[in-house]
Every structure is written in structure tokens, then in C-alpha cells.
């Protein structure tokens, strides 16, 4: 493309500057803009405004796009590392459970001997127990407070 042709293209393109909107368009535009703002204010809530303000903060820090990508990659890497690292059975809940089930320090069998003295709540009825087992108590269905009403 020679200099003349280049200049001809540029000259033709400059003619497009003469394409203009109708007279008074820009004043009308401002009125329409106000109308639109009022409509938006009625529609949008506080959360939307806050979200837009939040989104508007970041581009102003001029953080390179690569930095965003690097941050996400670093977070993802850290997540994978935490998931994939070998477990120490003593430190984890799983390890504790395994240890617990391997060497139980208590029995799930019924225990007949009660070391603590039974607590007396209201009136209790001793229940006869089979031989070789200690006696135990059954609470009455009605609360003890109803037996002895308060008197002043």
C-alpha cells in the first residue's frame, strides 16, 4: 500500500465524522439517563450496590492478570498438598478411632457393679436384683416435686 492509497483510506474514514445523531440528541440523552438512574435505584437493592462497589475496587489496584492466575494456582496447590500429604495416625481423628477400636480400654458388656453411690431424687424404690448384682433404682414416673409441695 503506497502513501497515496494510505492517505486516501484515511481521508475516507475521516468523512465518517460527519455522521451525527439528530439535533438535541445529547440533551435528550441526559434526560433519559436520569430516568434510567431513577428506575435502577428503584429496582436494585443495597446488596447489588455493595457487590458492584466491591467489584469496582480491584481493577484500580492494577494487579497484573497473571497475579490473579498465580494466586488461584497457589491456593489450588496448597489444597492438593493438604489433601495428599501422609497421615500421622496419632494426630488425626481417623488414627484415634483406629487406635481406640484396636485397644479398647472399656468394655461394652453390661456392668453390674456401680462404684458411685446412687443419687436419691425424691423417693426411689429399690428393685430387687438377681444374685451377684448390685441393687439399682428406678425413678418414679411422677416428678418428686409434686410429692412435697412447697410451704411457707
Amino acid at each position: 500500500m503506497n502513501q497515496n492509497q494510505e492517505e486516501s483510506v484515511a481521508r475516507l474514514l475521516r468523512l465518517k465524522r460527519h455522521e451525527q445523531p439528530p439535533h438535541g440528541y445529547h440533551e435528550k440523552f441526559l434526560r433519559n439517563f436520569h430516568r434510567r438512574q431513577r428506575a435502577e435505584a428503584l429496582k436494585s437493592g443495597t446488596w447489588q450496590s455493595l457487590w458492584e462497589a466491591f467489584c469496582g475496587i480491584w481493577p484500580n489496584y492494577q494487579v497484573p492478570r497473571l497475579a490473579y492466575v498465580a494466586s488461584v494456582a497457589a491456593l489450588a496447590g496448597a489444597g492438593v498438598f493438604l489433601i495428599a500429604q501422609p497421615h500421622n495416625p496419632r494426630d488425626t481423628a481417623q488414627g484415634t478411632l483406629a487406635q481406640w477400636s484396636a485397644t479398647p480400654d472399656f468394655s461394652l458388656e453390661p456392668q453390674h457393679s456401680v462404684s458411685a453411690a446412687p443419687v436419691t431424687i425424691g423417693s426411689t424404690i429399690p428393685v430387687s436384683s438377681p444374685a451377684g448384682t448390685s441393687e439399682h433404682y428406678v425413678l418414679q414416673p411422677s416428678p418428686s416435686s409434686t410429692d412435697q409441695p412447697l410451704s411457707f
Binding site: F33, I57, N60
Partner: peptide, 13 residues
């Protein structure tokens, strides 16, 4: 209209 609306909403930032 959208351009100026967006600019108005973001002017504080």
C-alpha cells in the same frame, strides 16, 4: 446509557 450508568456506579472506586 449503560456506559454512563456503569461509570456512575463505579465513580467512587
Amino acid at each position: 446509557q449503560e456506559v454512563f450508568s456503569k461509570a456512575f456506579r463505579s465513580i467512587r472506586s
